[in-house]
Write a protein that binds this DNA or RNA. Structure first.
Length: 289
DNA sequence: CTGCACGCCTGCCCGC
DNA sequence: TGCGGGCAGGCGTGCA
């Protein structure tokens, strides 16, 4: 569920908690998430200072003083939650219990910082992943090297999108979900952007006209910016660093809106829920052509 | 090479 | 009240 806006929201929340802090101890409670965790992760991270936190697509990148970068992917249900251990007044959801002093069974990794804050990685479904590699080799990492442009950067333009869609025989939805074409989108924001552009998710990508590609590119940027400003979408799992939900679900126009009236002001259609490529698509067949 | 089905994993929700 | 089945979906694998 965490797509680009959710990961960016987490990044922004982590910066005041983690930037310039030293990891004084690591509590690693499992050896694997989706894949094995980095070898000797605890030893390699202990006493390292976090020099910066950036994001590429849905990956969080922690630059460390030991010359390595920690890569974290939240998968479907991963959360990074900050917890003060002295004078804590925060309410955390589904994790550390202040009364019993016990961690949740899905608290897999806990980063203790020199500021009396701990960052808890909680992930019930364990679709998340971590890796730890030399910072110099970051661009060639297997998770990062094939990613397409960041949609909010100048590397992503309507011209780029038009040219790429022209090469695809799949549906426009499948193309926009492809991380090598554009990085960071998932089911929710692809469907929202297509609704805003009045393009059906079932249209063939190579049939998209130039003016339509422009509308899609603008819609992608608009929906991502708005979602980041709202602190992301919390449909089931997503939480911000302090445990708060995001508020963008109030702004969703089609995702999860089956059988409701289309919110397009000039449209009398009804939002449909249909299976597409083994995933759920929501769209209005009346105004999305 | 492209396009797409599948499996991973758990919690939740629905129907019986 | 209990239980089985379907669903959520990002991403790697493997197939045609």
């Amino acid at each position: 569920m965490p797509e680009l806006p959710e990961v960016e929201t987490v990044r922004q929340g982590l910066i005041p908690e983690m930037n310039e802090k030293i990891i004084v101890r690591l509590d690693q409670r499992r050896l694997d998430l989706r894949w094995p965790l980095p070898k000797n992760m605890s030893e390699r991270l202990t006493n390292s200072r976090i020099l910066g936190i950036s994001r590429r697509s849905k990956y969080l990148l922690f630059t460390l003083s030991n010359g390595e970068t920690l890569i974290i992917h939240l998968g479907m249900s991963g959360r990074l939650l900050a917890m003060k251990f002295k004078n804590d007044t925060r309410k955390l959801i589904g994790t550390f219990d202040l009364e019993t002093g016990k961690f949740d069974k899905h608290d897999h990794i806990i980063f203790f910082l020199d500021s009396d804050v701990a960052i808890i990685y909680n992930d019930p479904r364990r679709f998340g992943a971590m890796d730890l590699i030399p910072t110099l080799g970051l661009d060639n990492h297997k998770w990062l090297r094939r990613l397409g442009p960041e949609p909010l950067s100048n590397n992503f333009s309507s011209k780029y999108l038009y040219e790429k869609l022209k090469q695809r025989k799949s549906s426009v939805k499948a193309a926009l979900m492809d991380q090598t074409l554009i990085a960071g989108l998932g089911n929710i924001y692809v469907l929202e952007a297509l609704w805003l552009s009045k393009i059906s998710p079932f249209r063939r990508a190579d049939d998209i006209k130039k003016i339509e590609a422009e509308a899609i590119a603008i819609s992608i940027k608009n929906v991502l910016v708005a979602a980041i400003e709202a602190g992301g979408t919390s449909l089931q799992d997503f939480r911000q660093v302090g445990g708060e939900i995001g508020y963008f679900q109030r702004c969703l126009n089609v995702y999860g809106c089956s059988d409701t009236k289309c919110k397009n002001i000039r449209c009398s259609g009804t939002i449909q829920r249909v299976k597409q490529l083994g995933r759920t698509s929501y769209f209005c067949s009346n105004c999305q052509k």
